[in-house]
Amino acid sequence: MAGFANLFYNTFVRRNSVYVTAIFGSAFAFGVGFDTAVTSVWDKWNQGKQWKDIRDKYIQDEE
C-alpha cells in the first residue's frame, strides 16, 4: 500500500503541472466512461423502444 502511495505521489503529485493535468484528464475520462456506461444500461433496459431502435424501418436509402 505504501509502495503504491509513494508511486502515486512521485508520478502525479510531485509536479503541479502533472498534478493539475492528471486531475483534468481523469475527470474527462471519467465523464466519458460514466456516460457510456449509463447509456449502455439505459439502452439495454429500453431495448426496442427508442427511436434509434425503430428508425431503420422508416429510413429511405439516399441513392
Binding site: 444500461v41 439505459w42 433496459w45 429500453n46 423502444k49 427508442q50 427511436w51 431502435d53 425503430i54
Partner: peptide
C-alpha cells in the same frame, strides 16, 4: 404506461 418506471423511456413506435 410504457414510460412509467424510473428507467423507462418513451415507446417511440407508440409516439409515431
Amino acid at each position: 404506461w410504457s414510460h412509467n418506471g424510473w428507467l423507462d423511456s418513451y415507446d417511440h413506435a407508440s409516439i409515431r
